[in-house]
């Protein structure tokens, strides 16, 4: 009951002071808005990239051809050896016969040609198809497999997928850097907004101290003021995210350029994004105001 009464008082005071220092409040709010829009874009991009790299990774395979004269015993050993590679998740093995049958199925001409081959003079190569655990290490794993005896050729990806994934990673890093820089500027602006409020209420604060208000009571209105700045600052980014992503998704019918890149479905994705944006706004507001309170309130 007492808590509620005090909280009510704090919220009333905070809203009043947001409007009293309107120009500085507006500066803080705008800065939070810009920051959060960039955060939102980065998050939308980042989650989508994560989503479809996962999809792509599922399809990424290392194909290992063995020498065609590899013995059965040796193949059994190789199955063990390759299966035990730390980065190998699973493998599929196709014997010469399997490969032959597959090819025969694919084409009528090949069918007749291959039909003449006996088991011994089948020149095709036994094949392993590997799935890896970590796509970033796929090159290294392939190199290692290449060095094994009886392995003749190793193929994986086309290089394009790797480049794509690593360039996404770079974009993400740049975005994170921009967000961190903006958060710093925002916090600085909030600190100054709250500082102004604190100064304009110096007399009131000193009297509160004299008559025995607790530190908590003195601090809370300023912390809440920071949170309110954060909430106001997240309104536009939330609207932007919700409608922006929806429009984007509909415009591209859920796929970006090729069917390889599938976008995340808007629901419930946009609601989760909105919530995250709001929480970040509030947290940034609170960090700024706590800093100001600690610096200028000496409590």
């Amino acid at each position: 009951m007492k808590m509620l009464r005090m909280l009510n008082r704090s919220i009333r005071d905070s809203i009043k002071s947001v409007f009293r220092n309107f120009s500085l409040s507006l500066a803080s709010i705008s800065c939070i808005t810009i920051t959060l829009i960039i955060v939102a874009i980065s998050m939308l991009a980042s989650f989508n990239v994560q989503n479809f790299t996962k999809e792509i990774e599922k399809d990424l395979t290392i194909v290992v051809f063995l020498d065609s004269d590899t013995s059965e015993d040796r193949i059994t050993d190789l199955k063990k050896e390759i299966g035990n590679f730390p980065n190998v998740e699973s493998y599929e093995f196709e014997s010469k016969e399997d490969v032959k049958q597959k090819m025969q199925k694919e084409s009528e001409v090949l069918n007749t040609v291959l039909d003449g081959w006996s088991e011994e003079d089948n020149p095709l190569k036994p094949t392993f198809k590997l799935k890896v655990k970590n796509v970033n290490k796929i090159g290294k794993t392939a190199d290692k497999i290449k060095q094994i005896e009886n392995v003749s050729v190793v193929k994986y990806g086309e290089g394009m997928v790797e480049t794509m994934i690593s360039s996404f990673a770079t974009i993400q890093k740049v975005a994170y850097g921009a967000v961190i820089a903006l958060v710093v500027v925002t916090v600085f602006l909030i600190v100054n907004t709250i500082k102004l409020t604190i100064f304009s209420r110096k007399r009131e604060i000193s009297i509160m101290r004299l008559v025995g208000a607790s530190n908590f009571t003195i601090k809370t209105p300023f912390i809440i003021e920071g949170m309110i700045l954060g909430i106001f600052g997240s309104i536009i980014p939330i609207v932007f995210t919700t409608y922006g992503y929806l429009a984007f998704y509909n415009h591209f019918n859920g796929y970006l350029y090729t069917h390889l890149i599938k976008l995340i479905r808007p629901e419930p994705f946009i609601y989760q994004m909105s919530l995250i944006i709001l929480v970040i706004g509030i947290i940034v507001g609170m960090i700024g105001s706590s800093k100001a309170v600690r610096k200028y309130l000496k409590v």
Binding site: K2, R5, I207, L210, G212, A213, T217
Partner: peptide, 23 residues
């Protein structure tokens, strides 16, 4: 004196009770 100029006499005195959470 150290009164708050924007508050009335009543409010100035009540201020001391409000900020310590009195009913």
């Amino acid at each position: 004196y150290r009164l708050l100029p924007k508050l009335t006499v009543y409010e100035n005195v009540a201020f001391a009770m409000e900020v310590i959470g009195a009913k």
